[in-house]
Nucleic acid binder design. Structure first.
Lengths: 330, 330
DNA sequence: ATGAGAATTGTGAAGGCTAACATTTGGCCG
DNA sequence: CGGCCAAATGTTAGCCTTCACAATTCTCAT
């Protein structure tokens, strides 16, 4: 910076002002400085900047350590939203274990992130958050019923899926749930149970998987004989389940109708095409960053009067495809 | 840090030494400092640290802006490898356009990353790299034939897939290629062409898609009537293609055999299960970080004597499933 | 012209940390 | 029991920015 100033024939503070779009700078001076910067290939040192402003402009992102569509989309959305606001994301993946989660959060906190986004949270994360006494704004994605939660209403999505099957005349329905500790999994299960209860029906036993197609495949063996429809907690498991049914010679949707959740890009291209619940991950990510930045601004303005945890609920959308059909009359 | 020092009854430099595992500190002193740190919940300011050491310990990751399995896995692998070495990743997604790529790289460089990883590079990236005069170590993933490239041998993978079809007796084979500007796409296309040429066969017209299942689906319409097998440049397109074939009542693999690429988790659970080429993304990511850190160490040791661009090639593996079968005799 | 006020630029300090050098403490040998 | 060396700890300065305040220059109305 010193060199730039010398080359442009100004003081270092003028360079700083040009860099920060300070209003009252003579255009000619600005040009001279800009030229010097370009000539020298100068880049401002973010560490020095962060030191003096005490703002890192970093947002920590805690994501599950899987390459699945949902989390990956969320990371992407958060990333681009953050960047659009001049922030940069520090992405860290962690397994579900308490220690790993704590370590990952510690890592992010050590980097002095100004805010945190937790994607696809599980119970452990909340424990870790409590243990750590986190002082930065934090949102959790896809758990809109929790304080600080933002995302698609998971329970509503599962309800939608279930009601779709009910409307088709199904009465013997089972739920293929995700791992218990994931908030998304429990919310979806609740939504399913709600819809069944509301219809005055008793659900079949809950099957459970680990989000993977393999676990959906395995779950098929535990399907009850009278079941005519399954609400799967995500598309991967639904796809695995359909594969197992196909292998067993049981027609989908003829004998068993299947609904997924997430609307992964492949959902429309498996056969039969998967009826599923679409989530707007892009919007969720953008909204999360907006909320975070707003809270950051509030903190800056004055410590008190925090608006608290404004839950932000985005409605899901049912996409009907070929994997669901009316129940055959008994 | 000052407060910690006061509480522990030592000077700030001793605190710094404890934090940095400096050898000669009396164990008792260390414990006292550690206790003070814990009591105060003190965290070292990374900006100040970076300022004085002039090391940010940040690695920039440029990834394509898609939530697909391949890139997502690579990001994840790079992330965990970097963290294991005390670095943190700055992930930035960019579209393929030149300007977007330059902007993304500029962004990373502005954050003073010490090294760069470019995932799934396309031609534009190399142009952008040239334009920017990048002075930090850089590796490109999945383009092992380029200088600084690390990854699975894409051409070899496509060759493997093609040879598998040839062994099954297929002679009328078409390639469903990825977007032209992606290095992975061209390498795979080359591998396919090689294998065909070696077998003395003429390939059918090259179909092209954009990596998506939808584009694979659309490509089915352009399949030549005599074609009995297709080598798709990725699994998504293969899945889309199979869906279209199923809709058209053409049996897979009976009438048309299909091979994919990537071995996405769903590949084993579509029906027919997809024969594909497996890549060890985890290993690629780890290797990339290792190479980068080694180069960083070398730079530190002395400017000269750089080992140059050590290309690092990882072999792919063919996974045979149900979507390929012997060609029917003519 | 001349002074007021605005516009533009400059000076000095500080932010939290580590490196280099300086000092103190403790152990051990003669 | 003094002195010397190594171990342990302290002092000072500086990394590169930005902020607060200060000084200069310019523009006009009088």
């Amino acid at each position: 910076m010193h060199d730039v100033a010398a080359l442009a024939g100004v003081s270092h503070i003028t360079v700083s002002r040009v860099l920060n779009d300070y209003p009252s700078i003579r255009p000619e001076t600005r040009d001279r400085v800009l030229a010097a910067i370009a000539q020298l290939g100068y880049r401002r040192n973010p560490a020095a900047r962060a030191l003096v402003t005490s703002r890192t402009r970093a947002i920590g992102v805690l994501s599950p350590a899987v390459a699945q569509h949902g989390p990956a989309s969320s990371v992407l959305a958060v990333e681009s939203a953050a960047r659009a606001h001049g922030y940069h994301p520090l992405v860290t993946a962690a397994a579900v274990e308490h220690d790993a989660t704590v370590a990952a959060l510690e890592f992010l906190l050590d980097q002095a992130v100004e805010a945190l986004v937790v994607i696809a949270p599980h119970e452990t994360v909340f424990g870790a958050i409590r243990d750590l006494d986190i002082r930065v704004p934090l949102v959790t994605l896809q758990a809109p019923d929790r304080p600080g939660g933002i995302g698609v209403d998971q329970a509503a999505g599962a309800r939608l899926a279930t009601e779709h099957l009910l409307e088709l005349g199904h009465t013997r329905i089972q739920h293929l749930a995700g791992p218990e500790r994931y908030l998304e999994a429990t919310a979806r299960r609740t939504g399913f149970a709600d819809a069944m209860a509301r219809a005055g029906l008793t659900a079949g036993a809950t099957l459970s998987g680990d989000w993977s197609a393999a676990s959906g495949f395995a779950a098929a063996a535990r399907l009850e004989p009278q079941t005519t429809a399954v609400v799967a907690a995500n598309d991967q498991m639904a796809i695995g389940l359909m594969a197992a049914l196909a292998d067993a010679g049981r027609a989908v949707p003829g004998e068993v109708a299947v609904v997924g959740f997430d609307d992964v890009p492949e959902a429309a291209y498996v056969r039969p095409a998967l009826t599923t619940v679409h989530q707007d991950f892009e919007l969720v990510g953008r909204r999360a960053v907006e909320v975070l930045l707003a809270r950051l601004r509030d903190d800056e303005a004055e410590g008190a009067g925090e608006p608290g945890a404004t839950a932000d609920v985005i409605p899901p959308r049912l996409i009907v495809r070929a994997s669901t059909a009316p129940a055959r009359r008994a």
